[in-house]
Design a protein around this nucleic acid. Structure first.
Lengths: 210, 210
DNA sequence: CCCGTATCGATAATTTCGTATCGATATTGT
DNA sequence: ACAATATCGATACGAAATTATCGATACGGG
């Protein structure tokens, strides 16, 4: 365990956790085989992923479910990060209301927007501020993660402001491709990329039946 | 060109297209080097990706921008797929209003929801129907793609209904992991996976400066 | 009590993906 | 016209990820 965890594995860990927690009738033990079948993954792959964070697998029975959940939660959420969101449109509101981030050590503490109709309101219990308060508030609270849910025109400009205020990781949902300095992490969430994969799969499915 | 296109490449193609189209002052020609620098990718990687779909690169000058856009659009959107969306909450509305899907051969034609206050209304010019109309409408229009933006409780059940109605590709934004038959494509969009990667990057960044 | 089987962990093989290198070619400057 | 250079496409190499294989171990059934 506690070896170097590859990016690919890291992306699967939340999926295991999510699946385990969503099981209504969780058995006491669960095997890699069972998990693999349920999630459409390779049996060996699951075992290898789990080996990174757990060493409690037993032949013939599998892993104790509650232990597995515990180590996954521990690994994924071991330090809670506060985050702010810029752009309280539909997507921004959806993310602010998304239950489940906090399970992964992630907490949205405030939103920012230009719209006076939104400022001062609350969304999912989180207050919405005017963007002019943004830099000050981020700096004061020492927040490191910023989420951008804005039209692409203002995305880069906002990213620059966030970075100037001390943000070190940006999750960008705008269609714009954001460029940041090397000492800032960025994840450009591109809907079209996911879609391209799905669309290709569909095409192949339909073709294979002709 | 027209070789087998890997999944990794396929995911980058929309990014190239998006970048090229978003350039305000697009030059007549653009080189792989320029693209690579702008998108923080390897120069050779970009060239290799583009080689899959284009053969119009010229030494010293690069690719003719409008040709590149044309082949990318052609490849990514060569068959327009109609799609429906189930769950017209914040996220559903955000996707319905998302400009940019149609550039990738993808068109949301209707939404479905349970809320009587929404039924009959329009979101971004698309009508919202009651879920009881869902199966009929999908079958009648021969729609193949369904997007699920519902709470996790109803996700699997809805997926089953969609499939029964003839849907062959599901884009699932609910936190639930959806299981489908082999002849249906599914993409479980897991926010937590993206987040895990970003969060780890941030942690490493902060650690490396200590 | 022993044998068959499901499962684990580890190692090895294969595949996929990314990167480096090299000759070829078009443009620019002299 | 010719040399210098940026870029392309192709090939070869290396790294990463997935998949296959194997011995070891725990449980259940004769």
């Amino acid at each position: 365990m506690t070896t170097v965890i590859s990016k690919a594995t890291l992306q699967r860990l939340p999926i295991y956790l999510n699946y385990l927690k969503s099981m209504a009738d969780a058995p006491e033990y669960i095997s890699a085989t069972t998990l693999a079948n349920a999630l459409r993954l390779g049996e060996v792959q699951v075992r290898k992923d789990l080996a990174c964070i757990s060493d409690a697998g037993k032949p013939k029975v599998g892993y104790m479910t509650k232990d597995l959940v515990a180590v996954l939660e521990d690994y994924l959420g071991n330090d809670v990060n506060d985050a702010v969101i810029v752009g309280v449109g539909h997507l921004g509101k959806a993310l602010m209301a998304y239950k489940g981030f906090e399970e992964y050590g992630f907490k949205i503490v405030a939103g920012f927007d230009l719209d006076p109709a939104l400022i001062g309101k609350e969304v999912a219990g989180k207050k919405v501020f005017g963007v002019e308060k943004m830099e000050n508030l981020i700096r004061r609270l020492g927040i490191k993660i910023g989420i951008i849910t804005l039209p692409k025109e203002c995305a880069q400009e906002t990213a620059d402001k966030l970075i100037a205020a001390g943000i070190r990781a940006i999750w960008n949902f705008s269609p714009a491709y954001i460029i940041v300095p090397d000492n800032v992490a960025v994840k450009n969430e591109n809907m079209a990329s996911s879609l391209a994969v799905l669309s290709k799969q569909l095409k192949e499915l339909l073709l294979s039946e002709k």
